Simulated assay, not measured.
Amino acid sequence: MPNASISVLAEAVQYNCHVSDARHGADDSLCIYLMKMREYFRWEKHLPYGASLEREQVGEWLQAREQLWEELEEAQMRPIEIDGERYDPFDAEAINNRIAPLGLVYSGGLGNRAKPHFVLGALEQRRSSDGYSVFVVADEYARDLSAPPAMTLGRTIFVRRESLRRYLWEKLEGWRWHRPDNALGRAFACYDFDGALESSLEAMTAREIKALLLHEQGEYEAGQRLGEDWNAMLAVLVHTPAELMARAVRDHLADCLVTLPTLADAGEPASLHFYIGTLTGMRLHLFPALKDAYAAWLETDATGAFAQLADQGRAHWEQVAEEMLALYRRHGGATPRALSDASPAGLPDAIRLLVESRRL
């Protein structure tokens, strides 16, 4: 880390990361949690990818970290203090205005299940285009357990190079357990991971950061179309299956707006394989036609099926999203009755039934 003042700032951000993890560390299944903790240990100890982790050291660190989280379960987020001035930890714009001269970038926002995500890192690049700004984060000095490689907050897109690299590493590690012949394996086969791990990770990161930015550009455009009511609706749906569906619908809209047509036009096998290979869970359940388009591409080597599906999906998912918003408004927004899973008339159930009926 460059200097002592930045270290103090990183400690302040890391405290809020610990508070967030204390509240949400148990959100994942045990298997996923332990995998994340192993890589969190690797990041915190500055260990290289591929380095074997001593089980005893990881175990002791894990026990200490869980003890810390237990102590912070009822703690509140602290303001970020810079030169005597205090800032709300979610006021990323104001904080970035102060730390940009130091070559730093900060992000603070809510992710899945309303989990707060914070990061402080080195500013690699900043640019503005078409009404939004893009910050690219290089080395990260403070972060929480879950480190989303990208996040769009209002008119600002944050892309995290180090988190993307670690995400790719985790995907590679998971795939290597059984090495199935699938889309993810075909994506990895485009690189020499067995013979040149670090350079292959760097090459894949450089390629996929472009695709990541495409998705966030789509997120921004989707946000412009759907308006602020969408985030208000998400707040009502937190911790329900309908939240996962809502996020998947918006992800598909974003990808059909920008990611999928651009990838289809470029026709890069590595990125197309990786896009399909990481399509799991709710996103795959709601959009099985993507698998059909992938099969057509494998057979013909032509990306026309992807382009056609993007056109179809763009109209389809925007319509589904608008119907979801109509349900939200009809239910009067965030009311206790709307949050009741037990009531068939509750908003989460209504949205779940709607989206399930509109799979593509």
Rank of each mutant, 00 (worst) to 15 (best):
117 H>F: 09
69 W>A: 01
60 E>Y: 03
56 E>V: 12
67 Q>M: 06
95 I>K: 04
53 L>T: 11
98 R>P: 04
119 V>T: 06
89 P>R: 03
82 I>G: 14
55 R>D: 11
114 A>P: 00
55 R>K: 13
96 N>T: 10
43 W>L: 12
111 G>I: 15
110 L>S: 08
112 N>D: 14
73 E>H: 07
107 S>D: 04
42 R>Y: 04
49 Y>K: 00
78 R>A: 12
75 A>F: 01
75 A>K: 02
93 E>V: 12
69 W>R: 09
115 K>Q: 15
117 H>M: 07
97 N>P: 01
109 G>S: 13
47 L>P: 08
114 A>M: 06
66 E>R: 14
123 L>S: 09
40 Y>L: 12
74 E>Y: 00
111 G>H: 11
114 A>Y: 05
48 P>K: 00
60 E>R: 15
89 P>S: 05
72 L>K: 05
74 E>Q: 15
59 G>E: 09
65 R>Y: 07
39 E>S: 08
64 A>H: 13
79 P>H: 12
42 R>F: 02
125 Q>C: 07
87 Y>C: 05
118 F>V: 02
123 L>Q: 15
43 W>M: 11
83 D>V: 10
73 E>P: 00
78 R>T: 08
89 P>T: 08
89 P>W: 05
34 L>A: 11
72 L>E: 04
57 Q>S: 15
56 E>T: 13
124 E>H: 04
63 Q>D: 08
50 G>E: 03
94 A>I: 12
89 P>D: 06
88 D>S: 14
84 G>A: 06
57 Q>F: 02
79 P>I: 10
107 S>L: 14
109 G>D: 14
45 K>Y: 10
118 F>C: 04
122 A>R: 14
77 M>W: 09
94 A>P: 05
80 I>S: 06
107 S>V: 15
122 A>K: 12
80 I>K: 04
125 Q>S: 12
65 R>V: 08
37 M>A: 08
113 R>K: 11
125 Q>D: 11
36 K>V: 00
94 A>G: 02
34 L>F: 07
53 L>G: 01
115 K>M: 15
81 E>Q: 09
96 N>Q: 03
51 A>K: 06
88 D>L: 09
121 G>W: 02
112 N>M: 09
62 L>N: 05
43 W>Y: 10
96 N>V: 08
116 P>N: 11
50 G>A: 07
111 G>P: 07
83 D>W: 07
96 N>R: 06
45 K>V: 09
87 Y>E: 03
48 P>N: 00
85 E>S: 12
44 E>V: 08
60 E>M: 11
47 L>V: 09
